[in-house]
Simulated scan of single mutants.
Amino acid sequence: MPRFSANISMMFDEHRFLERFAAARDAGFEAVEFMFPYAYPVASLRQAVQDSGLSISVFNLPPGDWERGERGLACDPGRGTEFRASVDTAIRYAEATGAKRLHVMAGNRGKISFGVARSTFLENLRFAADRLGEAGLEMTIEPINQRDMPGYFLSSTELAADILAELDSTNAGLQFDVYHHQIMHGDVLHSLERHMPLIRHIQIAGVPDRHEPDEGELNYPRVFQKIDALGYDGWVGCEYRPRAGTTAGLGWMGD
């Protein structure tokens, strides 16, 4: 079985956020990930991670105004200064928590032409890859499905692969979310095999309802076998919304 990381932005929400680190550890996880840590002081995050003894598998750069629907800044040509500042902010949190990987959200395209959004995204990724590389960090990009996040620029795994090929950076790779990929493309097993050289982080959830991976249209035991067979030894992030209590829903990990 792969090594699982709990996404504590979705899981363990029976607890306050800073208490979720210890809750995940007590449930048997050795790593966690989360969406955004920026509402919490750096020192508080550092202490929570140190007290839990957990590794941090990944978290996102600041997304802009999430409450107003922003989903990242990197494809918007009018937000370059803000994007660059967000990279430095994320680095501070990574250094405090010991995280080694950060996800750059592309953002919504809106009225921006595809060509401008793509070239802007690539330009910002070059900056981020260089800056994160200097800090000893790895960068990922993740295709997100259009049902959950309508208008998000990067929704195609093939587009992500093309951008990474053009970027040609040794510290940049693909964040392959099985849930998002299944909704947009299907053919998960072949896609994992095809894109494994690019993959730096994997995430999972049941399809279509984004609950535990023991229900829905995907045969996750077979997916896990494929991940192992391909030699992937990184974390697999459990980015799902528990049907009921988090701990009560963890039985699938022992199957």
Score class of each variant (00 low, 15 high):
F4C: 06
I8K: 01
S9Y: 13
S9D: 12
M10W: 15
M10G: 10
M11K: 00
R16S: 08
F17C: 03
L18I: 10
E19Y: 07
R25H: 14
D26G: 12
E30R: 07
A31H: 07
V32H: 01
F34I: 12
M35D: 06
P37L: 09
Y38L: 08
A39N: 07
P41R: 12
Q47M: 12
Q47T: 12
Q47N: 14
Q50F: 09
G53D: 12
G53M: 05
G53S: 06
V58A: 14
N60C: 10
P63R: 01
G64Y: 02
G64K: 05
E67P: 08
E67I: 14
G69E: 03
E70Y: 00
R71I: 00
A74V: 03
R79E: 12
T81G: 13
E82Y: 04
E82P: 04
R84G: 04
A85V: 09
V87A: 09
V87L: 11
T89W: 09
A90G: 13
I91F: 10
R92F: 03
Y93P: 04
A94D: 02
E95I: 04
E95L: 11
A96R: 01
G98L: 03
K100V: 13
R101K: 15
L102Q: 01
N108H: 13
K111G: 10
K111P: 09
S113Q: 05
V116H: 12
V116N: 10
A117S: 09
S119V: 12
S119C: 12
F121T: 02
E123H: 07
R126Y: 09
R126T: 08
A128V: 10
A129I: 11
L132N: 07
E134T: 11
E134C: 13
E134R: 15
A135R: 09
A135E: 05
E138I: 11
E138H: 08
M139G: 07
M139Q: 09
I141G: 01
E142T: 08
P143M: 00
N145A: 00
Q146G: 10
Q146P: 01
D148W: 04
M149R: 14
P150M: 14
P150G: 14
L154Y: 01
E158M: 06
L159I: 07
L159H: 04
I163K: 01
E166H: 10
L167R: 02
D168S: 05
D168T: 00
S169N: 01
S169C: 07
A172N: 03
G173E: 04
F176W: 04
Y179D: 03
Y179V: 05
H180D: 08
V188G: 09
V188R: 02
S191P: 11
S191Q: 14
S191R: 15
S191M: 13
S191V: 12
L192K: 08
H195L: 15
P197Q: 10
P197K: 06
P197F: 12
L198C: 05
L198E: 07
R200M: 06
H201V: 13
H201I: 13
H201G: 08
I202G: 06
I202C: 11
I202F: 09
A205H: 11
A205R: 10
G206V: 13
R210K: 10
H211G: 11
E217V: 11
E217R: 02
E217L: 10
Y220P: 00
V223R: 00
F224N: 05
K226H: 05
I227D: 00
D228V: 15
G234T: 04
G237W: 00
C238L: 03
Y240Q: 01
R241H: 14
A244T: 15
L250Q: 07
W252Y: 11
W252K: 00
M253P: 01
